[in-house]
């Protein structure tokens, strides 16, 4: 099957007073229709910028975004409006992502109004709003409520309904559950999975929560300072990681047992500044395995085994550091 979305050499730079900030730097990936790509990384690694660039809330600095076979990197106004119907976004903060002065119904209906769906017939649109509310699990009687009257979970359901109003095929989910309680997180994740099956949606799921990404993604990109450092299927990544950063990241997943802790890889050193980065591995300052080559040349994303791409010099010179984190590899801290 052809991929629904392909991103080639995508770059997004911001001009700041102290230099050029490389938020997204030469990112490549492809997503098949109906699958979910998880994007993980720490705060400020550019994962949200990546999502916003793909849905054209930010214009890419360079590179190509190919959606359904068409290059959409610099769409005209008309193309962009059409594109809005195809790709939507679910936002992180269920509190600031809803206009406090609008009712639930008008928030969901607005997109239909703008695009004059259902022939611009308000009555029909209203019907569709109620249908959508039902789909995302919102009671009809909440239609005239204001967002501040509802809890975080319900608010996020509104955000999802708003994204679905235009019947898109592709949705960028920017940390949609990170602001919610754990119990509500599960509900929303299940809802999103159900919707994906029902409506054949394709997701990019941006998060820093590894247990969430494990639950929902088919494939995962691990990002570090604007670059993808490791990319493979979810199962493969959780089994074994090749990039030292991915290893450190996954070693931070807590084990839900009292008195037991995983042997953590603690990263030392400062995060390299994303402003005017030097041509070297961006992880070199914190990497426990760094060699001299790492600070001289930028590693490329290479396929190290089937379906697994890693950007690390250690792979190339055959000094692959393998550090598995099975459950046996734990330290008993107090007994």
């Amino acid at each position: 099957m052809a991929s629904l979305l392909e991103v080639r050499h995508l770059k997004k730079y911001f001009q700041t007073p102290s230099g050029t900030l490389h938020a997204v730097d030469d990112v490549n990936f492809a997503i098949e229709s109906g699958e979910t790509l998880g994007v993980v990384g720490e705060s400020g690694c550019g994962k949200s910028t990546l999502g916003r660039t793909i849905v054209h809330l930010l214009a890419p600095t360079s590179g190509q975004i190919i959606f359904d076979g068409k290059d959409i990197s610099s769409p005209s106004k008309k193309e962009l409006k059409q594109l809005r119907k195809e790709m939507q976004m679910v936002f992180q903060d269920p509190f600031s992502s809803l206009n406090p002065r609008m009712t639930v119904k008008s928030i969901i209906q607005e997109a239909m109004e703008i695009h004059k769906l259902y022939g611009g017939d308000r009555r029909r649109q209203e019907q569709e709003v109620f249908k959508l509310m039902d789909t995302v699990g919102l009671a009809k009687r909440l239609a005239d409520s204001y967002p501040h009257e509802l809890d975080g979970g319900r608010r996020q359901r509104i955000g999802i309904a708003r994204a679905l109003a235009l019947e898109p095929r592709f949705i960028v989910c920017d940390e949609p559950v990170s602001a919610l309680d754990v119990s509500v997180q599960a509900q929303i994740l299940n809802l999103m999975q159900d919707l994906q099956e029902e409506k054949d949606l394709t997701y990019i799921f941006i998060t820093h929560d590894l247990s969430v990404v494990k639950h929902i993604s088919d494939n995962i990109c691990v990002m570090y300072l604007g670059k993808i450092v490791e990319q493979c299927s979810t199962d493969k990544l959780f089994e074994k990681q090749y990039h030292p950063y991915a290893q450190a990241l996954l070693s931070a997943i807590p084990i839900p047992k009292v008195g037991i802790q995983r042997k953590r890889i603690l990263l030392k050193g400062e995060i390299t500044s994303p402003i005017d980065p030097k041509p070297c591995c961006r992880f070199v300052a914190r990497c426990p395995h760094a060699i001299s080559l790492c600070s001289e040349e930028e590693p490329k994303l290479l396929e190290v085994e089937e379906g697994r791409f890693v950007a690390c010099h250690l792979q190339k010179i055959g000094r692959a550091v393998e550090l598995t984190v099975p459950d046996a590899d734990v330290v008993i801290i107090n007994q």
Partner: peptide, 17 residues
């Protein structure tokens, strides 16, 4: 800076709107 402005842009709202 609020996300609902971004959300409005995302569903295709014009500057005027």
């Amino acid at each position: 800076e609020q996300e609902f402005i971004e959300a409005a842009r995302c569903i295709g709202a014009s500057d005027k709107r």
